[in-house]
Simulated scan of single mutants.
Amino acid sequence: MLVVDDDRTNRMMVTYRLEINGIHAVAAESGQQALGIMRTESFDVVLLDILMPQMDGYTTLELMKNDPALRDTPVVMISQLDEVDSVIRCLELGAEDYLPKPLNSLLLMARINGILLRKRLTDMEEDYDNQLGVLIEALNTAEKDAFDPESLNPVADRNDRLGECARTLQRIIPAVSRHGHP
């Protein structure tokens, strides 16, 4: 997780809260520094302060959402600004959430855990889709008599229905090919 706040005390407090909850946190003191860090390291969530000198949180968020490498990183905006217009602006710019300062530790962790859960589910769905693509490719190669049963090993190693399907295809396709069935 990346914590971006120009106030050293706030950065340290939030980082500490995250660390005691088992979440590794990296701190940045400006939007510019945060963007540089994000271009070399990926983060599951970014906590981004709005009120910062030089480049404020709005601009940082906008630059993130316009960068294909960063746009999918969930951002939680944090600020002492408690104006509805500020919340709306952040959400319109693509923030996942908005939390007022001072941060409530329980609320912070609940929101972060919710975002991390959604991210894990999305990652699992992408992985499942990729593995399904491997199965489809194997079926396409079998149709052309170019099937290699070992091409399904990464999927067959799974302990779920997709793995079971891959193991079945590894058995059936060579048998069907040997007997000359279409």
Rank of each mutant, 00 (worst) to 15 (best):
L121P: 09
T59E: 12
R11A: 09
H179G: 02
N130Q: 14
E164D: 13
T9Y: 10
M12R: 14
S151V: 12
Q170Y: 08
D157V: 10
I172A: 11
I78Y: 00
V155K: 07
S79E: 04
V134E: 12
P149R: 06
E29G: 14
T122G: 10
N130I: 03
I37M: 08
G36E: 07
E137K: 14
F147K: 12
L108Q: 02
Q131K: 15
E83V: 05
R158F: 01
P154M: 09
L48R: 03
L51N: 11
S79W: 01
D160T: 08
R8Q: 10
R178N: 12
A95R: 07
M13E: 11
E83S: 09
R161S: 15
G94T: 10
R171C: 04
R158E: 03
L91R: 10
V3C: 06
Q54W: 08
K119V: 01
D97C: 02
P53N: 12
R71V: 03
Q33E: 13
V46L: 05
N21T: 03
D72H: 15
M1H: 04
D44S: 10
L81W: 06
S105N: 09
R8P: 02
N130Y: 03
I20T: 15
V87D: 01
I88E: 04
L117R: 15
E143Q: 13
L35M: 05
P174D: 02
A69F: 05
L2D: 13
G22I: 10
C90A: 15
H179Y: 09
T168Q: 12
D5A: 03
L108I: 08
V176Q: 09
D157S: 14
Y58D: 00
L63P: 01
I173V: 14
L117E: 13
D7G: 01
M1R: 00
A166I: 02
C90Y: 01
R161Y: 05
R17S: 08
A146M: 11
G22R: 14
D82M: 00
D148H: 12
V87L: 07
T73E: 12
D7M: 10
D6L: 00
Y58T: 11
T40V: 08
Y16P: 01
G114K: 06
D160H: 06
A175E: 15
L169T: 14
M55V: 07
L63T: 03
G163W: 05
I112P: 03
R158H: 05
D97L: 05
M12P: 03
V155S: 08
L51C: 03
E62K: 15
R178G: 08
Q80H: 09
L2E: 13
G180L: 01
R158Q: 11
Q170E: 07
L91N: 09
R161K: 12
M124R: 15
A27H: 02
D145H: 14
I50L: 12
A146W: 03
D148I: 15
A95C: 04
A95E: 03
L116M: 12
L81Y: 04
M109N: 02
N159T: 06
F43D: 12
E41P: 02
L61W: 08
D145T: 11
F43Y: 11
I115K: 10
D6Q: 11
V3Y: 00
L47H: 08
Y98T: 13
R71M: 10
N140F: 00
H24Y: 09
V4S: 07
N159V: 04
M1T: 13
A110T: 13
P100Y: 00
L99S: 07
I50S: 00
K119C: 02
Q131L: 03
R161I: 05
N104L: 07
D157K: 15
R171A: 09
D44M: 04
